[in-house]
Nucleic acid binder design. Structure first.
Lengths: 323, 323
DNA sequence: TTGAAAGCGGTACCAA
DNA sequence: TTGGTACCGCTTTCAA
């Protein structure tokens, strides 16, 4: 039988109120009484019921995080780790869940959280959904590197991928590449934007290519191998590290040397970048800054809606020759 | 202002009880009344308060999972993904947190969860701690691949690492290796046990070695390179994939061919195993079976304490020649 | 078919 | 310094 304030009060022969005061060390209690109460509480193994407290105080220390379903990307998991670390510093507890199949299921999930969760962070979102319907739910919402249909109503913290991609392409050029390609699935527009931004400012004797494939995986990078060779590309930026590592395998099979024959850069800065031979240059996400800003916003939810963007950062490794 | 049953009852001019009945589709309500109530509830965006329900019904759909602090192991994160997937099937929501520094902090954390969380899964644990003190907390406890001091009081689901290691070593022998080593940090006894089990049954003309290093990381595997060469090892099992990939780098630098000169196997079946060239053979954890058993136990907590163990499984890839 | 009311376990106001 | 008590929102029993 779990101990409650009432049980302790009865056993100690005092009121509930006095028990409460004693437990929180309020000094408006006679020391002997407080001591007796504390002793009983300890013996009975009293722990306060968080549900009851949440109900009464209308507050909570739990932060829900919505992530991608069975997320295959290492980078997202690292990001969640980072989030947990920073929330923990402020005694906030993350409640993870994956984004449900449809909007109705999401609403059902959020209803399950009503009264338990103070903030919900969307680290995944379906851009077709009507986020406006969230607004009557009694919790704070934050979009984490995702943008809903009606952004003016929500706090949004996002990653500027373009800046890192731009830096990567410039590094390829600086390393002497003269036929540079960007390779990725159609629709990843922020990377494309960074690529084009770099193209504008680079020397006019460099030729640029855009290579498209079906997905973001190792097999897709591998599959682009023949086209990269055919077009005599000497520097290639892949939209994901996994694609880049897929190309590594192709290069290895054909005796193509990296970076001597072709310089390579990826995106996400997966752990595998360092394992790879040669170590893969990549663009890192600004997780720390992003998460810190989010946690600040959770602790101080008042005022206007906040929109903030954070720059990604290129990390040069062996896969690009030093200029 | 968040809608409550009371508000809806007042607006509809009926009692709280009737509102409750209407909302859950109880047919003991006059259709017109039910319709009026539902309309108001929809307009007001009513959602039930989970904290209040938990308090009243003394039940919850939230399962806490304690994981390693800033876990560097990909395999643990995959395991958590798997857990979330299976919990979700039964409308249970995982609440993740990392294992606090000390036992007092853990107790504080669990107190924060009292009344909100029905089960706590320890996917990380400090074996020196007195788990017995958990027993008076009003929740179910499950140890996930961890063993507390007083195992007789707790549900324990664990991984039999020994079987997979044994299979790996036998595969090395079958591929023609005659000087086989196990490499790892001191104290990883379950892997050692599997190694020794294989040694017992293998041909007497095979020589076995045990190589020790400081940690489980890439650098440790790399650092063992010289000793592996000096001892003329032709088949090596590393306690982690990361160590194996560290050795890959050493081999690449020295022109040592894998698997022609030395066959290699790892443990954990990280994603990097497939990226690696040649693809790294490894031992996979029995996540699915383990997690399914845990979820069954959460749904049916009654009866005696359960202890179950699940066999790990060796996956042969390019890093070991086919016999 | 409907409603009044008693809790679940804390918190906090007000009065003694 | 202490106690009585209302209340957070929901569930459920019992009576009307």
């Amino acid at each position: 039988m779990t101990a409650t304030l009432k049980m302790i009060a009865e056993e100690a022969g005092v009121s509930i109120r006095t028990v409460g005061r004693s437990l929180r060390g309020d000094n408006a209690v006679t020391p002997e009484v407080a001591e007796r109460v504390l002793k009983i509480a300890r013996e009975r193994g009293y722990v306060p019921n968080a549900a009851a407290r949440s109900l009464r105080t209308n507050s909570s220390s739990i932060v829900g995080i919505i992530v991608r379903k069975q997320d295959p990307f290492e980078v997202s998991r690292r990001c969640i780790d980072c989030m947990e670390k920073h929330l923990g510093k402020h005694n906030l507890h993350p409640l993870l869940s994956s984004l449900p199949e449809n909007f109705e299921a999401l609403m059902k999930l959020l209803q399950e959280w009503t009264g338990l969760v103070r903030t919900v962070i969307f680290a995944e979102w379906d851009s077709a959904w009507q986020a406006g319907k969230l607004l009557h739910l009694p919790m704070q919402f934050i979009f984490f590197d995702r943008i809903p249909l009606n952004p003016e109503s929500f706090n949004i913290f996002s990653i500027d991928r373009s800046s890192g991609v731009s830096a990567a392409v410039k590094a390829l050029a600086a390393a002497g590449c003269r036929r540079i390609a960007q390779a990725g699935a159609a629709g990843t527009s922020s990377r494309r934007e960074g690529f084009e931004k770099a193209v504008e400012v680079l020397a006019p004797d460099i030729r640029f290519f855009r290579l498209e494939c079906a997905g973001p995986d190792m097999a897709d990078g591998y599959g682009l191998g023949p086209e990269i060779i055919r077009r005599k590309i000497d520097g290639v930026f892949f939209d994901t590290d996994r694609m880049a590592l897929g190309f590594y395998r192709y290069a290895s099979e054909r005796g193509i040397r990296i970076p001597e024959d072709i310089a390579v850069a990826g995106f996400d800065n997966d752990t595998a970048c360092i394992y790879a031979i040669p170590a893969l240059s990549s663009v890192a996400h600004p997780h720390e800054e992003l998460v810190q800003a989010v946690v600040r916003r959770i602790l101080e939810p008042g005022g206007m809606v906040v929109h903030q963007s954070f720059r990604s950062c290129f990390i040069a490794r062996e896969s690009i020759k030093r200029p």
